[in-house]
Amino acid sequence: TSQSKEFDPLGPLPPGWEKRTDSNGRVYFVNHNTRITQWEDPRSQGQLNE
């Protein structure tokens, strides 16, 4: 049996976020709370300043 979700070392996405793949196979992220899409992983944002 194959799992639909692959193991992700960053852990789960924040509430309201979804990881998607476009027609070219590039991963992007959707924030359903604000209806915004972005290329950057929301889990890695904010760690750059620490």
Score class of each variant (00 low, 15 high):
T1F: 03
T1P: 04
T1V: 01
T1Q: 00
T1M: 07
T1I: 15
S2V: 04
S2N: 15
S2R: 03
S2D: 15
Q3G: 09
Q3M: 08
Q3N: 15
Q3R: 07
S4V: 07
S4C: 12
S4M: 11
S4L: 06
K5D: 02
K5E: 01
K5Y: 06
K5M: 02
K5T: 02
K5Q: 09
E6Q: 14
E6P: 07
E6V: 03
F7N: 09
D8Q: 11
D8W: 03
D8G: 08
D8H: 04
P9Y: 07
P9L: 06
P9M: 05
L10D: 13
L10C: 14
L10W: 05
L10F: 03
L10A: 14
L10N: 15
L10V: 12
L10K: 13
L10R: 11
L10T: 10
L10M: 11
G11M: 03
G11V: 08
G11F: 01
G11A: 09
G11R: 06
G11D: 14
P12Y: 04
P12F: 04
P12K: 05
P12A: 14
P12N: 04
P12E: 13
L13A: 02
L13S: 02
L13I: 05
L13G: 00
L13H: 00
P14H: 12
P14F: 04
P14S: 05
P14G: 10
P14L: 01
P14N: 13
P14A: 06
P14V: 02
P15V: 15
P15G: 13
P15E: 15
P15S: 11
P15K: 13
P15W: 05
P15I: 05
P15F: 08
G16W: 10
G16H: 14
G16K: 08
G16L: 04
G16N: 14
G16E: 09
W17R: 01
W17T: 01
W17H: 03
W17D: 01
W17Q: 03
W17G: 02
E18C: 12
E18F: 06
E18W: 04
E18T: 07
K19T: 09
K19M: 09
K19L: 05
R20M: 14
R20S: 12
R20Y: 10
T21R: 13
T21C: 06
T21G: 08
D22L: 07
D22Y: 02
D22K: 15
D22I: 04
S23V: 10
S23R: 13
S23P: 14
S23G: 12
S23A: 10
S23D: 10
N24G: 13
N24T: 05
N24A: 13
N24P: 02
N24Q: 12
N24F: 10
G25T: 07
R26P: 03
R26E: 15
R26S: 14
V27K: 10
V27C: 14
V27N: 08
V27R: 09
V27S: 13
Y28L: 07
Y28Q: 10
Y28I: 00
Y28N: 03
Y28W: 05
Y28S: 06
F29R: 01
F29L: 00
F29P: 01
V30M: 13
V30R: 08
V30Y: 15
V30G: 04
V30I: 08
N31G: 01
N31Y: 02
N31C: 07
N31L: 00
N31M: 00
N31V: 00
N31P: 01
H32P: 12
H32L: 08
H32A: 12
H32I: 03
N33A: 08
N33K: 06
N33R: 07
N33M: 15
T34C: 13
T34K: 14
T34S: 14
T34F: 13
T34I: 05
T34P: 07
T34W: 15
R35I: 00
R35N: 14
R35L: 06
R35V: 02
I36F: 08
I36R: 06
I36W: 12
I36T: 02
I36S: 08
I36Y: 09
I36G: 05
T37L: 04
T37I: 03
T37A: 12
T37E: 04
T37Q: 09
T37K: 01
Q38A: 04
Q38R: 01
Q38V: 05
Q38E: 02
Q38K: 02
Q38G: 02
W39Y: 14
W39L: 07
W39N: 02
W39C: 07
W39R: 13
E40Y: 11
E40F: 03
E40D: 15
D41M: 02
D41R: 07
D41I: 03
D41H: 07
D41N: 04
D41Y: 02
P42A: 00
P42Y: 00
P42C: 00
R43M: 01
R43S: 02
R43E: 01
S44L: 13
S44R: 10
S44F: 09
S44N: 02
S44D: 11
Q45W: 09
Q45V: 15
Q45G: 11
G46T: 07
G46Y: 09
G46S: 13
G46E: 14
G46K: 12
Q47Y: 09
Q47S: 03
Q47F: 06
Q47W: 14
Q47V: 13
L48V: 12
L48D: 15
N49K: 15
N49P: 03
N49Y: 10
N49W: 15
N49L: 11
E50T: 11
E50V: 09
